[in-house]
Amino acid sequence: MASLSSLIEIPTSIFSSSSINNSLYPQKGFPFLVKVNRLPQRKRSFVLKSAVDEVSVLDPPPPQNAKIELITSLKFKLLSAVSGVNKGLAASEDDLRKADAAAKELEAVAGPVDLSTDLDKLQGRWKLIYSSAFSSRTLGGSRPGPPIGRLLPITLGQVFQRIDVLSKDFDNIVDLEVGAPWPLPPLPLPPLQVTATLAHKFELLGAAKIKITFEKTTVKTKGNLSQLPPLEVPQIPDALRPPSNTGSGEFEVTFVDADTRITRGDRGELRVFVIS
């Protein structure tokens, strides 16, 4: 009967290659064979681990970061769509469609607004850069309002909203140039520069709807007449006020962050503001 050593003995011909020197390995038994076979396995394991580590470093950013980047890109798209139309006064039908589509895309990605837990997002002075209502060429949008450049030569300047969440003050501030309706001899009068402040109080209805209630209008002259005191414009009596002009209004905040705000009003208008 063959001995146990003769049964497990491996011929030296297995190791006879240019990469292995047989003279350095005189033993031909099984223990040596196991030791040689494990060396390449350890190397492969190390290489595999290195590859896995490299893949983990190249993983895409977390979804939240990707969403922030997408919102930033969509904000830029919206601001590009509403630029060059003079706050909406020079907007064509195609401009209106592009602005509305860009706003809807941003609103969909950002999700619903909830001001009930974060009303401070409204705080500050906001500059109006676009209103779809101005495309009607009146300051009143879809409701009756002073015409621009028709009966009165009114030039609309900057428009702001000043919001104080503590006092619930909500002021619409409008810069205007008002010219004389006809030339007066001997020389035509220069346009009158004024700032009109329409003071309101606001309240939050639900998660994102704002109701504003009109209080008063104050007009302050600018330029050469800036030394004149502010003038409070008398209110129209309720009995004489048109049904469409109730002194209050509602709008929904559909997007807001640290520097951009989108609202959709009860007149159907889209407004875009940036922090000022």
Rank of each mutant, 00 (worst) to 15 (best):
L70Y: 05
T138W: 15
R162N: 14
E250D: 11
P242N: 01
L187F: 02
K75R: 13
Q27R: 04
E203Q: 12
S80T: 12
K43R: 06
W182C: 04
E269S: 12
P62F: 00
L139M: 15
P185N: 03
D120I: 02
S142M: 14
S16P: 01
V52I: 08
I71M: 13
V272C: 05
K49Y: 12
P183M: 01
Q193Y: 09
P181F: 08
D114F: 12
T260Y: 15
S80W: 00
S131R: 15
D59R: 04
R267A: 09
H200P: 03
T12R: 15
K87I: 04
D53F: 11
I14R: 15
R267T: 07
R137G: 07
E93V: 04
K35H: 00
F134L: 08
F170D: 08
P63E: 08
Q41P: 00
T138S: 14
S45L: 12
E105M: 06
V85K: 15
D95W: 11
D164G: 08
N86T: 02
A108N: 13
E107D: 15
P147W: 15
P63I: 07
L176H: 03
I20T: 08
I68N: 10
F255E: 02
I212G: 00
V57E: 14
D164Y: 13
L79I: 08
K49I: 10
N65S: 04
